[in-house]
Design a protein around this nucleic acid. Structure first.
Lengths: 246, 246
DNA sequence: GGCTCATGTAAAGCTCGTTCACATGAGCTG
DNA sequence: CAGCTCATGTGAACGAGCTTTACATGAGCC
């Protein structure tokens, strides 16, 4: 597989034909291995089988490559969050938590992207395209929060959706960054990062007045949820988000 | 000023006399400026007025310097969290939130330490002393959570303190890392990172069943709180943690 | 006074990021 | 098909950083 990329050089002519893409892929692999800080432009070039100067025909400098990766990352991130949200099906709270898990899953399954996006030091606000991609991803969370906020139990003040979105984002990022990736994952925990985040979000939502026990859904405009996949994974265990009290 | 450090060289003899400390200070300044990734060993040496090889008499390599800084950071962090907790005075919830704010304040006021501790890629689990320092700091949060958990309103299941501590840590780290430092701070927010975190923690605590409105304190073993500094900063605004609903 | 060893220096080797002048050949134009 | 052009790749070179090695210095101790 990636075998060919390296040995291809003898067979390929002077021109690579697809260097830009090859560099992006190589960089992705290297970042996954050694982190954005450890990744080197020269290594990526080597891996693609070209000279150290060749990448400069496709990226202004190392940072632009990183930035491209971050942008792709945000795009895939947005896609996955959108899929997880699934327009709030089967019910808003369930879908909302699924977004949280999708966040964590992305951080775990795409460490290179996550690293480039949030931990590489790439200045997001300097690159309009990157910033836009980042905002589109965040807007998925925000839109979901909007829908959730609209369901706030009557009688309680309605929480600002933007704030909720920021809260959820910070929880997900905090858990991902502290417990779910690389070295950090080695900290010993009493529960998995997924469970940790799920409980955190559930407690938070309860603090906002949302009923978080699936067996007694919100009594607002929300249609009664279709009975989901039994109580697999996303179900709240009886006794609250943290399980049976000891 | 740091002026002297650099020009001192002419006056000082062959030996620096305090190089290790000087290097740590120099590195701290450089990391604050350019981040742990941007900091260079050579620069630190220059700033201390010694040759590029001199630092190797005091640190095995660049990473060991970083690691020393991280360790100091954890120590100061622990001290500040401990002071903020103040053994739960005047009441547990107030003190608990103060710990949250102390976390954020540390991240903001000691960016170099925070960076070295959490964002430099230094593997904590490889260095026993570092790991121990890190655990001591976390244990402050954990002990506070323990006390808080003991106050869980009767009738509700008691949340595991460890889990609460991890939740609080992830919230604080998430907010600090996303909104409170460096480039990230440039994201435009509807509220300050401090307010964001405070609201988040309050909602979370409410989700656990803690009364978070200061005017009606917990009715458990907790003695009625001494009326604190009016309602400055830490007070919950009437209408809930997020202020008046629009 | 003289020794010793911790501490500092200079020089060198390696890698990396980046630039520059030059080479190659894919694809268009006539 | 000949020839041109320009995007793409090469090699050499520069400066900077990390690290090691052989050597220099002098502070503290006998």
């Amino acid at each position: 597989m990636s075998w060919r990329k390296e040995t291809r050089r003898a067979e390929r002519g002077y021109h690579h034909g697809n260097l830009k893409e090859a560099l992006l892929q190589a960089a992705l692999g290297l970042i996954a291995e050694k982190g954005a800080a450890g990744f080197t432009f020269a290594d990526a070039a080597r891996m693609a089988g070209v000279s150290a100067a060749a990448p400069y025909r496709h990226f202004r400098d190392r940072e632009e490559l990183l930035s491209s990766i971050a942008q792709r990352g945000f795009e895939q991130f947005e896609a996955r969050l959108t899929a997880a949200w699934d327009d709030g099906r089967p019910d808003t709270v369930t879908a909302f938590e699924r977004v949280g898990r999708a966040y964590l899953a992305f951080a775990r399954e795409e460490p290179a992207f996550y690293n480039a996006m949030f931990e590489s030091g790439v200045p997001v606000d300097v690159n309009p395209a990157l910033q836009a991609a980042s905002e589109r991803a965040f807007n998925v969370i925000r839109a979901a929060a909007e829908r959730l906020a609209a369901l706030a139990p009557p009688g309680t003040p309605r929480p600002p959706a933007m704030m909720m979105a920021l809260h959820i984002w910070s929880m997900a990022h905090g858990v991902a960054s502290l417990f779910s990736r690389g070295d950090a994952a080695r900290r010993k925990l009493p529960m998995s990062p997924d469970e940790l985040l799920e409980a955190e979000v559930l407690i938070y939502l309860r603090g906002l007045g949302f009923p978080t026990d699936r067996r007694s859904p919100a009594k607002s405009a929300e249609p009664p949820p279709v009975p989901p996949e039994a109580s697999s994974g996303s179900g709240v265990p009886p006794g609250g988000p943290w399980g049976k009290p000891k």
